[in-house]
Measured scan of single mutants.
Amino acid sequence: MIINNLKLIREKKKISQSELAALLEVSRQTINGIEKNKYNPSLQLALKIAYYLNTPLEDIFQ
């Protein structure tokens, strides 16, 4: 099972779900679904998340 630290990292960087969704060009519901482990992001989306949060991919999804 993948450990998902997206919410923790996003909140630590003081970025809202809506702000991150806008940067990634996805819906806020997509971010919410990823954070609640209801949706697994594509590799492309996971890499974009890591880029915009300036955090290694391995720290977000373990």
Score class of each variant (00 low, 15 high):
S18Q: 12
A46D: 00
K38Y: 13
S27I: 03
Q17T: 08
I3A: 12
K12T: 11
M1H: 11
L8E: 15
L53W: 01
L24E: 00
Y39M: 10
P56L: 05
N54V: 05
Q29Y: 09
L23G: 10
K13G: 04
L8H: 11
K12V: 07
S16C: 05
K38T: 13
L6I: 08
K13S: 07
L57E: 04
I3W: 09
S16L: 05
N54L: 05
V26P: 01
L24A: 09
K48I: 03
I3N: 11
L43M: 13
A50D: 00
L57Y: 12
P56Y: 05
Y51C: 10
L43Y: 12
E58Q: 14
N32V: 14
L47K: 14
G33Q: 15
E19M: 11
Y39V: 13
K7N: 04
L24R: 00
N40L: 12
N40W: 10
K14L: 08
L24K: 00
K38Q: 12
N37F: 12
N40I: 15
N40Y: 13
Q29N: 14
K14A: 10
A50W: 03
A22Y: 08
N5W: 08
I49G: 00
E25Y: 09
N5M: 06
L8D: 13
Q62P: 15
L57G: 03
L57M: 13
T30N: 03
Y52A: 12
K13L: 14
I34H: 02
S16T: 15
Y39T: 09
A50Y: 02
E58D: 10
E19R: 14
L20H: 00
R10W: 03
P41A: 06
S42V: 06
L53I: 04
I3D: 08
I31T: 01
L24W: 02
L45A: 02
I49M: 06
N40D: 10
T30G: 01
N5I: 06
K13V: 05
I9R: 02
S27A: 05
K48V: 04
L23K: 13
D59Y: 08
D59V: 11
R28Q: 15
L23D: 05
A21R: 02
P56N: 08
K7A: 12
S42K: 08
P41D: 03
K7S: 06
G33K: 15
L57W: 09
L47D: 05
Y52E: 05
Y51A: 10
F61V: 03
I15A: 02
L20M: 06
K12F: 09
Q29E: 15
T55N: 02
L43F: 14
L20P: 00
L20D: 00
K12Q: 11
Q62C: 11
I9A: 07
A21D: 00
I15V: 09
L53C: 04
S42P: 14
Q17K: 07
K48S: 07
L20S: 00
N5P: 03
Q62H: 10
Q44P: 11
Q44V: 10
M1V: 13
L6N: 03
F61M: 04
N4M: 05
A50P: 00
I49V: 04
L23E: 07
F61L: 05
Y39S: 09
E25R: 14
E11K: 09
K48F: 03
E19W: 07
R10D: 01
I2T: 13
L53F: 07
N37L: 09
A22M: 13
Y52R: 04
F61D: 02
K7Q: 10
L20C: 03
E11I: 10
A50L: 04
Y39G: 04
L23P: 00
N4P: 04
L53E: 00
P41M: 04
S42I: 04
N5D: 05
P56T: 07
L45P: 00
N54S: 10
A46R: 14
A46I: 07
K48E: 06
I34T: 01
I34N: 01
L43N: 09
I2W: 12
I60E: 02
A21I: 03
Q62L: 13
A22L: 11
M1F: 13
Q44R: 11
S18A: 14
Q44F: 10
L57R: 04
N4D: 02
V26H: 01
E25M: 13
K38E: 15
L24M: 07
N37C: 14
A46F: 03
N4K: 04
L6T: 02
L47G: 06
E19P: 02
N37S: 11
N40E: 12
L23C: 09
I9Q: 04
N54Y: 05
N32S: 12
D59I: 09
F61K: 02
A21F: 03
P56R: 11
I15P: 01
L43P: 14
Y52P: 00
I34D: 01
E58F: 09
E25H: 14
E19K: 14
I49W: 03
K36E: 15
V26Y: 00
Q29C: 12
L45S: 00
S42G: 11
K7H: 06
I15N: 01
E58V: 08
A50V: 06
E19D: 10
L57F: 10
S42E: 06
K14C: 11
G33V: 10
E11M: 12
I31G: 00
K14R: 10
M1Y: 13
Q17D: 04
K14M: 10
Q17P: 04
I60S: 02
L8W: 09
I3P: 10
E58C: 11
L45M: 07
Y39E: 08
Q29P: 06
S18F: 09
Q17Y: 03
K36G: 09
P56E: 07
M1D: 09
V26S: 01
A21G: 05
N32F: 07
L23S: 08
N5H: 09
I9L: 08
E25T: 08
E25G: 15
K7T: 06
E25Q: 15
I49L: 07
L8A: 15
N37M: 13
S42Q: 06
Y51Q: 11
V26L: 04
I3S: 12
K38H: 14
K13D: 02
Q62I: 11
L53K: 01
L57P: 05
I49C: 02
K12M: 13
L20T: 01
L8M: 13
D59S: 12
S16D: 04
N37E: 06
S16K: 08
P41R: 01
I31V: 13
K48R: 10
L6W: 00
N40C: 15
L45H: 03
L20K: 02
G33W: 13
A50T: 03
P56G: 05
S42F: 04
K36A: 14
K12W: 07
T55C: 08
L53V: 04
L20V: 00
Q44I: 09
Q17E: 04
N40R: 15
I31F: 03
L20E: 00
F61G: 02
A22D: 11
